[in-house]
């Protein structure tokens, strides 16, 4: 029994158009033009309890629209959605009481209030029993190291501190499902590690289902086994990271550190991607070219200090998807 069920979800928006310039503004007094944008064009997927899903796609692909529909804020044009057995937009209050949503750029805390007062207020809004609230609060304060921040008004917190407080706030009512929209945006390295670690523990130890929307591919690589790629309102891929890589390309990278600064490097079977001082990055297809053979040839023909093989960064994979002209493959992409 899937916890989240999405079937053939369709959503279009109608936007009014503004013509620039003074003449356009005067014309706008008389008549307004409208433009139709299809945000979602029939996507379908299901999520079981305890899954950690990476939900990626270029800006405007339909990610936040999906999250809004799943949380009951938005009503779709057509399609079927069930979250915890209920339709989210007809049972908004019941659905919302069991999920948590974090938007990376907007806080849900009260700007002028100390953090602890925001927590208390949220506990009352969500009708959290006192004992459960105290337990959750203390645990979250400990896990996210919030004790020194509790008395500070939210407007005085740094971005990283605010994000940690937001994460805690969203979990005070023990939600079963968590939607995280860009949780690591603007955070420094330590902050990102802390947030990722926290999310992983939440998912592994508490079984909280997480849908993570992010542009930071390190987040995806570290946290998600399953990935859905949305492109122009359609499902491009629903599978594992490995399948994602395989779908776009089967290439591998060979990073070579040469002995000398400007030593030449070339090979008939490999393509030079970039060159920085001693380090050269080569691209090759392991299906056509044996990695061992290629390495042997490179070492034989050049003065090599060090080398290693790796997969292309997810960023590049995804960028290629975003820029690709291929039509979204809904059913055949799912393995």
């Amino acid at each position: 029994m899937p916890q989240i069920l999405v079937e053939s979800l369709v959503k279009t928006f109608h936007l009014a158009e503004r013509v620039p310039g003074t003449w356009g503004a005067l014309a706008g007094l008389a008549r307004r033009r409208h433009r139709t944008v299809t945000a979602l064009n029939g996507i379908s997927f299901t999520l079981r309890e305890g899954e950690l899903l990476g939900y990626i796609g270029p800006n405007g692909a339909g990610k936040s629209t999906t999250v809004k529909i799943l949380s009951g804020i938005l009503v779709p044009d057509s399609g079927r959605v069930e979250v915890l057995g209920k339709v989210p937009w007809t049972h908004r209050i019941e659905t919302v009481a069991q999920i948590g949503v974090v938007f990376g750029q907007r806080t849900q805390l009260w700007w002028d209030l100390p953090v602890i007062e925001s927590f208390d207020l949220l506990a009352d809004i969500y009708r959290v029993p006192a004992a459960l609230y105290r337990r959750n609060r203390d645990e979250l304060v400990g896990l996210l190291d919030l004790a020194p921040l509790l008395d500070t008004p939210v407007r005085q917190l740094s971005l990283g501190q605010r994000m940690r407080c937001d994460l805690a706030a969203t979990l005070l009512h023990s939600p079963k499902i968590l939607y995280l929209d860009e949780p690591t945006i603007g955070l420094d390295a330590v902050g990102k590690l802390a947030v990722r670690d926290f999310i992983r523990r939440l998912n592994r130890e508490r079984g909280v289902t997480v849908i993570l929307t992010t542009h930071d591919m390190d987040d995806i690589e570290v946290l998600c086994e399953r990935v859905i790629v949305i492109h122009e309102g359609g499902l491009f891929l629903d599978g594992t990271l490995k399948q994602l890589r395989g779908r776009v390309s089967s290439e591998r990278r060979l990073i070579v550190d040469l002995a000398r600064e400007n030593g030449p490097i070339n090979d008939p079977d490999a393509e030079l991607v970039s060159r920085q001082g001693r380090r050269a990055t080569l691209r090759f297809d392991p299906a056509r070219v044996s990695p061992a053979g290629l390495i042997a040839r490179i070492v034989a023909n050049h003065e090599v200090a060090d080398l290693f093989v790796e997969n292309p960064p997810i960023e590049e994979i995804v960028a290629r998807i975003y820029g690709s002209a291929c039509a979204p493959l809904s059913r055949s992409a799912r393995q």
């Binding site: 208390d120 105290r134 203390d138 304060v141 919030l146 004790a147």
Partner: peptide, 28 residues
Amino acid sequence: LTRGAVLRARKKLSMCAHPMSSIRHGSA
């Protein structure tokens, strides 16, 4: 790191049990 943080947090919380938090509760 996390263990240390947890211990520190517990100590702080026990030292100043937040008065506001326990009083102002139950107004759901």
